[in-house]
């Protein structure tokens, strides 16, 4: 060993500290999910831990929870439309910005990325005031518009990253072989950036489905959104049904994540 024993004590204490904190972090990251899953199988009426017994009753209760079904369906609808709109607008804009040397491109890039940093709650309120001043009632359409603004950055980030990694020689050779731009885009660019776009679309979908600050202002009873309904249920009655719903959502997320990891390598693109 190069390191002399004079340092071993210091080295050891550093290692113990960092590994210990890391272990604590992992526990903290895993615990909430595990706790929710365990509590969702309780046979009791409260969130007592450990549960007094185990049953599937809260999952059964979920089947009749029509208010939650209604909100979930609305959220899925809005998330799907938001993803579609974000991909169309976002990929097009990414093509314009990526690899561009113009100063304007950088300005636009910051403009399109700004919803990521701005407090979305302020934007949610602004949207509500905007639509109501124009006499436009809140609806699925207004929700999709609001969500798209805050989801665009996710699509653009992964798409621009994918475009940046695209070998220029490939496009040049495609062009030199006589392919027009549209053909090159479809046959060369698109297949190569597809995983990046897919990852962005997935993150956009999940973040729209989970959106609170914009939905808070742009939803109403007829366009109920799942996170808001869950929040109100938790605040109004701390229902164990929400634990079962959380269980379902955790499993769904896990499955989607594994699928997306296989298809697009999502975890690498989220860094």
């Amino acid at each position: 060993m190069i390191i002399g024993h004079r340092h071993s004590l210091s080295d050891l204490s550093l290692r113990i500290t960092l590994w210990g904190l890391a272990a604590l972090s992992i526990i903290l990251l895993l615990a909430p999910t595990l706790v929710v899953l365990i509590v969702s199988f309780t046979s009791g009426f409260s969130l007592k831990f450990p549960p007094p017994g185990y049953s599937l009753r809260w999952y059964e209760a979920l089947i009749d929870a029509w208010q939650l079904h209604f909100a979930a369906w609305n959220s899925i609808k809005v998330a799907a439309l938001t993803t579609l709109l974000s991909v169309v607008l976002g990929v097009s804009a990414s093509l314009g910005i990526a690899r561009s040397e113009k100063a304007m491109a950088r300005v636009l890039d910051s403009f399109f990325m700004s919803p990521l940093i701005l407090p979305a709650l302020a934007f949610g309120l602004a949207s509500l005031i905007f639509f109501s001043e124009l006499g436009i009632p809140v609806s699925v359409t207004t929700l999709v518009i609001g969500h798209t603004v805050v989801c665009i950055p996710y699509v653009m980030r992964t798409t621009i990253a994918a475009l940046a990694q695209l070998p220029a020689t490939l496009l040049e050779s495609s062009a030199s072989l006589g392919a027009d731009r549209w053909y090159s885009f479809r046959r060369v660019t698109l297949p190569l950036i597809a995983p990046g776009v897919g990852a962005g679309a997935f993150i956009a979908f999940m973040s729209s489905f989970d959106n609170v600050p914009v939905s808070l202002f742009l939803r109403d009873a007829r366009t109920d959104m799942l996170p808001i309904r869950m929040w109100q249920d938790l605040e109004g009655k701390l229902d164990v049904t929400i634990a079962a719903l959380s269980g379902v959502m955790i499993f769904a997320t896990l499955i989607l994540m594994v699928v997306m990891e296989k298809l697009t390598g999502i975890t690498k693109r989220m860094r």
């Binding site: 992992i26 990251l29 895993l30 615990a31 909430p32 999910t33 706790v35 929710v36 509590v39 969130l47 831990f49 993150i203 999940m206 489905f209 989970d210 609170v212 799942l226 996170p227 869950m230 929040w231 938790l234 701390l238 929400i242 634990a243 959380s246 959502m249 955790i250 997320t253 896990l254 989607l256 994540m257 990891e261 999502i266 975890t267 989220m270």
Partner: peptide, 23 residues
């Protein structure tokens, strides 16, 4: 590890908050 780290990011924030009420 990366799965453990990324998973919460994709899980609904209401679910994660709810877990802390239980804890």
């Amino acid at each position: 590890l990366i799965m453990i780290i990324v998973m919460p990011l994709l899980t609904s924030v209401v679910v994660r908050t709810f877990a802390w009420i239980v804890i």
